[in-house]
Simulated assay, not measured.
Amino acid sequence: MSQSLYTFPTETTQKLRKFRLSSARAKEMEAQIYSIDPKTYEIKYQEPEDEPVLNSIESLVEELPENTPRFIVISYPYTSSDGRLMNPLVFVYFRPSTSKQESKMLYAGCLEQFKDKISANKFIEIDDEEDFEELVDQIKK
């Protein structure tokens, strides 16, 4: 097993695990944002500033920095066209085009490790805040 530059503190791992388990029963959208500390390379949960739970695309976008990438985990329950209740776990890689190259490289280096850690049903890359307007359509594809 190879060593990784990036680490998941116990608190982050527990937060991801709890979200994964509770999101399977969620009745509405929930999202969590994760950042990487550029000094320690630790992946950390980003506590929302305005509300305890991010439960809309709008509240999610408000919490995102304009010029720094982030990893986002979303649970988005919906009813499919054939009437089935769907609740995919979605991993969104937000990398604004205005980000500095160092930040983009920092997050790109951890992307596969984060994907493996959360085992999401769907992976979506977003380069601009305006792309969040189409996020629901991409989740339902």
Rank of each mutant, 00 (worst) to 15 (best):
C110E: 01
V92C: 04
R95L: 00
K115Y: 07
K100D: 11
F123C: 01
K100W: 01
S103L: 10
I118S: 05
S75H: 05
L111Y: 10
L89P: 02
K122Q: 15
E112I: 08
Y107D: 00
A120C: 08
A108Y: 03
S75E: 06
V90P: 05
N121I: 01
L111R: 12
I72V: 15
G109F: 06
N67T: 14
V92E: 00
C110I: 01
V61E: 12
A120Y: 07
N121V: 03
D116N: 13
E66D: 10
F114W: 06
S81V: 08
F94R: 07
E66I: 06
I124G: 08
T98F: 11
C110R: 00
G83Y: 03
S81I: 10
L106V: 11
F114D: 05
E62N: 12
A108N: 12
R95H: 11
P65E: 14
L106R: 02
S80M: 04
K122T: 10
E125G: 09
T98P: 00
V92G: 02
E125F: 04
L106G: 00
M86V: 08
S103A: 15
Y107E: 00
M105W: 02
S80P: 04
S80H: 07
M105Y: 11
Q101A: 14
T68F: 11
E62A: 12
I74E: 03
A120G: 02
F91R: 03
M105F: 14
Y93P: 11
K104T: 09
T98H: 02
L89T: 08
V92S: 00
L106K: 04
V73Y: 02
L106C: 05
R70H: 10
L64E: 06
L111T: 01
K117D: 01
T98K: 13
R70M: 11
S81A: 12
E125W: 07
Y107F: 15
R84Y: 10
S99N: 03
E66K: 08
T98G: 09
K104I: 14
P65T: 14
Y107N: 07
F91G: 06
E66M: 09
Y78T: 02
R70F: 08
S81F: 02
F71D: 01
D116H: 10
N121L: 01
I74L: 15
L111P: 05
E102K: 15
T98Y: 12
